[in-house]
Amino acid sequence: MKARFLMCAPQHFEVAYVINPWMEGNIARGSNPAAMQQWSALLALLRHHAQVDCISAREGVPDLVFTANAGLVLESRVLLSNFRHAERRPEEAYFSQWFVEHGFEVLALPPDVYFEGAGDALFDRRLPLLWMGHGHRSDPAAAAMIASLFDVEVEPLRLVNPHFYHLDTCLCPLEGGALLYYPAAFDAVSQERIATLVPPELRIAVGAADADAFACNAVNCGRHVILNQASDNLCAALAAHGYAVHQTRLSEFMKAGGSAKCLTLKLTEARTPALALP
């Protein structure tokens, strides 16, 4: 089955407030034409490998473009996000309406439990496991609730660097079982859990320069990895694992703290076959 993603065009995208360090100093400093050009290039690139649906852009919700935060999808069900920051909460109703209209069963956590969708929850591609980030946006209490709702094993990972406020800014599970990640974004316990669960030959650790270019905020479709920018060394490491790297400039969205993965939500998430966890 061809992968399917959700995106939202940036007609109303701008940095209008500050809710992460990337936004500081960038209010009203973006270029909407440049954002549209960069987003369109990402869309065209992704359409070579997948189907893309689009939710309509709306005034007053500039971060609606970051569809990864709409919710967590598994098969025909979606768990909607409960955003921590008031500035993003109006997005919830628009995403909910889209999912209902497109045949998804919509689930919700209690309103006092913050959870920011596939920004903080990523399915491993080798293990029957959901990695869940917490520490900045999502609450650790969400882990047990998600495990119960979806009948999945959830591995919480604590994020410690505010520049990597969502899990998808610093970790990307790749089809075939490799894991692209920035170790310094996690506390020592979480780094150890990753090392325990993912064998060294499948771990692709990036350095600070690649992390700051949001190399881990990548869209993976089969053996294709689409990202903003990657060093020659990282491209070589990914190629050695069998992945083709596609770089596409997304500097306008980085002003708001987002890149390729943030701009997409995979809608065709299936369960990973059972495998004994270490």
Rank of each mutant, 00 (worst) to 15 (best):
A70M: 14
Q191A: 06
L6N: 02
Y182H: 15
F5I: 13
E105T: 13
A93T: 08
E201I: 10
P110N: 01
F95M: 12
L275P: 02
A108D: 01
H48F: 05
A244L: 11
A230V: 10
V106H: 00
L122A: 06
N26D: 06
G258E: 02
F253K: 05
P111V: 11
T264D: 00
L46R: 12
L171F: 06
F5P: 00
Y165V: 05
E192I: 07
V206K: 00
F115M: 01
G71I: 06
A16N: 10
A118H: 01
Q11W: 10
R4F: 00
L159F: 02
A239S: 10
A41H: 13
F13G: 04
V73D: 00
P111I: 08
L129S: 11
A143P: 10
L127S: 01
S81L: 11
G207A: 09
C172V: 08
F164Q: 03
Q229K: 14
L180N: 02
G119L: 06
W39M: 04
F150I: 02
D120C: 13
M1H: 03
Q191L: 05
F5T: 13
D187M: 09
A218V: 12
D139L: 12
L159R: 04
P278I: 11
H166F: 12
D53M: 02
L250F: 04
R137Q: 12
S40A: 15
P183D: 08
L275Y: 01
L129I: 08
N26W: 07
E192M: 13
G60Q: 01
V219D: 00
T272G: 05
R4L: 11
S148G: 05
V113R: 04
T196N: 14
S231W: 12
V52F: 13
A244E: 15
Y94M: 11
R89Y: 08
E175C: 06
W98M: 07
V78T: 02
L159A: 05
E105V: 14
E252A: 13
L227V: 07
N69Y: 09
G177H: 02
N69T: 14
D187Y: 01
G242A: 06
N20M: 09
G103Y: 03
A218S: 15
V152P: 06
A142L: 08
V73T: 04
L46W: 03
L159G: 03
A44H: 08
R58W: 04
Q51E: 15
R84S: 13
T169A: 15
E14G: 09
A244V: 15
G133C: 07
W98S: 08
A16I: 12
L159C: 11
A188D: 14
G242F: 04
L265C: 06
A93E: 11
G177Q: 06
F115P: 01
L197V: 02
K266E: 11
V198I: 15
D139R: 10
Y94I: 08
G258M: 08
V18D: 01
C216G: 09
V160Y: 00
G135I: 07
H12P: 00
N26K: 14
V219H: 00
Q191N: 09
V106R: 00
V198L: 02
H134Y: 15
G177P: 13
P162K: 04
T67Q: 03
V100G: 03
Y17P: 09
E101V: 06
I55K: 03
A244M: 08
F164D: 05
P162M: 02
A93W: 02
